Computed example of a mutant assay.
Amino acid sequence: MPAMHYRLRWPDASESLAYSPSLVIEDFFQPGQDYPLADFLRRVREATAIASARVEAKYGFACSRAHDQMADTEARAEPFADLPDARVHVLSFTPA
């Protein structure tokens, strides 16, 4: 199953590299676009759930790495939750 890395820039200008076990992440985000934090989190949760379900359908078990990635993303987003204009910028996608 093809996997994808995606690079993000957070509201404090820090960057992170995230993982998706499926290319479905490309259906939810466009490189070069900013997303309000709540919208970003909604989209990444949905994309990660779909990706993990695809892994489970193919291999018989959910993707623990996708689960771990989602936990990391939630933790990175938490400090910005009270900022009304917090946005996440999707920098790029690269095959994993």
Rank of each mutant, 00 (worst) to 15 (best):
M1N: 07
M1H: 08
M1V: 05
P2T: 06
A3C: 10
M4G: 05
Y6A: 06
R7L: 15
L8Q: 01
L8G: 03
R9G: 09
D12K: 08
D12G: 04
D12L: 04
A13R: 10
A13F: 09
S16D: 14
S16K: 00
S16Q: 05
S16I: 10
S16W: 07
L17C: 06
A18P: 01
Y19T: 13
S20L: 12
S20I: 07
P21F: 04
P21G: 10
P21Y: 02
S22T: 03
S22C: 09
S22V: 01
L23Y: 02
V24I: 11
V24W: 01
V24E: 09
I25T: 06
E26G: 15
E26M: 13
D27W: 03
F29I: 11
F29T: 08
P31L: 13
P31V: 11
G32Q: 08
G32R: 11
G32K: 07
Q33C: 12
Q33I: 02
Q33Y: 15
D34R: 11
D34F: 13
P36F: 10
L37E: 07
A38I: 07
D39Q: 15
F40W: 02
F40E: 04
F40Q: 03
F40I: 02
L41Q: 14
R43W: 06
R43T: 03
V44L: 05
R45D: 14
R45K: 13
E46P: 00
A47G: 07
A47Q: 01
T48P: 03
T48A: 10
T48S: 14
A49F: 00
A51Y: 00
A51G: 06
S52Q: 01
R54D: 13
R54V: 01
R54K: 03
V55Q: 15
V55I: 13
E56F: 02
A57S: 05
Y59V: 14
Y59G: 09
G60Y: 06
G60F: 02
G60E: 11
F61E: 14
F61Y: 10
A62N: 05
A62D: 07
S64A: 08
S64P: 08
S64Y: 08
R65G: 01
R65V: 10
R65N: 09
A66Y: 01
H67L: 06
D68Q: 13
D68R: 06
D68C: 11
M70Y: 10
A71G: 14
T73N: 03
T73R: 00
T73A: 05
E74C: 00
E74S: 05
E74P: 00
A75D: 12
A77K: 08
A77T: 04
P79I: 10
F80T: 09
F80W: 09
F80Y: 15
A81H: 10
D82V: 01
D82M: 08
D82E: 15
L83P: 05
A86C: 04
V88K: 01
H89E: 04
H89W: 05
F93I: 14
T94Q: 15
P95A: 12
